[in-house]
Design a protein around this nucleic acid. Structure first.
Length: 297
DNA sequence: ATCATGACCTGTTAGC
DNA sequence: TGCTAACAGGTCATGA
């Protein structure tokens, strides 16, 4: 489900409720998601204060007092929601979101904030492709889930030069190279399709062809680096994309899906002014690619 | 090493 | 209306 912009939106939504709050109780409703929960996961969390919420690529990181860190990946269908204690009138009663299938509420964290208010942070994941792990103090960056990740596609780190050096010599299609989390970490199917359209590059082109043989930048590499950063920034600003059941932690819908140029728009006219092409769908490494073969070369 | 494919799991939707 | 097949935001293990 969520790519980097959605995870970042989740992080920002949870932050005001979780940061500085005490984990009063943690209820784990099954032994595993995609992988087993860590040993004594709930017990290790209970009684700890949450210092900060972070994000690395598509991973959410919950930093606890003492240095222990929860690593959470949302897979395809994972989501968090917040149920606030109504407080004074009906203590212990939580606002309930009926749009969710409670069957798939796999983890419920009850927190107490410094003002005394309580909230429940609920992780729901029908397909259970998500997972959670724990990193001991100081071991976050070297954790097996995070250590192999490539550069964040936000900010200036992702330059044309870097992209060219990463893709030089690669025979895989540009689409596959952009999805490779060891090179760039955080892009998924939607934003790769959108970035390639913005850059005017074909997803079918070999990755190596945006670099010189020596791995130096080309105008294509520059355009692609810009397009990736740009589409990610736009998507974060829009609160991510809401397809099917994705929502922000506060229940609001993201709205970047209204800005899709090609993703899930097979048969629609290419939105590039003057192009006149039609959005096509092809399958690459088992996944749908949407693009315009007229203006993406 | 690099690349493509199938597997993991449930829910929704398109098509007959 | 009801059934079935295809498809879905991701990653990992496998085999060529």
């Amino acid at each position: 489900m969520p790519e980097l912009p959605e995870v970042e939106t989740v992080r920002r939504g949870l932050q005001p409720v979780m940061e500085g709050a005490l984990l009063v109780s943690v209820e784990q409703n099954r032994a595993d998601l995609r992988f087993p929960f860590p040993e004594r996961f709930a017990q290790k969390l209970e009684g700890r204060r949450i210092e900060a919420l972070g994000r690395r690529a598509k991973y959410l990181t919950i930093h606890l007092e003492g240095g222990l860190c929860v690593i959470s990946h949302l897979g395809m269908s994972g989501s968090y929601r917040i149920e606030l204690d109504e407080g004074t009138e009906t203590p212990g009663a939580f606002h309930h979101d009926r749009s969710r299938n409670v069957l798939h509420d796999h983890l419920v964290m009850t927190v107490e904030r410094r003002d005394g208010g309580r909230a429940r942070i609920i992780y729901n994941d029908p397909r259970r492709f998500g997972f959670m792990a724990l990193a001991e103090p100081g071991m976050l960056d070297s954790h097996p889930m995070l250590k192999g990740l490539g550069v964040e596609p936000t900010g200036n780190a992702l330059s044309g030069e870097l992209l060219a050096s990463l893709f030089a010599g690669r025979q895989a299609p540009l689409k596959a190279a952009l999805l490779d989390q060891r090179l760039i970490a955080g892009l998924g199917n939607i934003y790769v399709c959108e970035a390639l359209w913005r850059a005017g590059l074909s997803p079918l082109r070999k990755a190596a062809t945006i670099a010189t043989p020596a791995g130096r930048k080309t105008p294509r590499a520059e355009a692609l680096a810009f397009a990736v950063r740009d589409v990610i920034a736009d998507a974060i600003a829009a609160g991510g994309s809401s397809l099917r059941d994705y929502r922000q932690a506060n229940g609001a819908l993201g709205y970047f899906q209204h800005s899709f140029s090609v993703y899930d728009r097979e048969g629609a006219p290419c939105p590039r002014p003057g192009c006149g092409g039609t959005v096509e769908r092809v399958v690459q490494s088992g996944r749908s690619t949407f693009f315009c073969s007229r203006c993406q070369r």
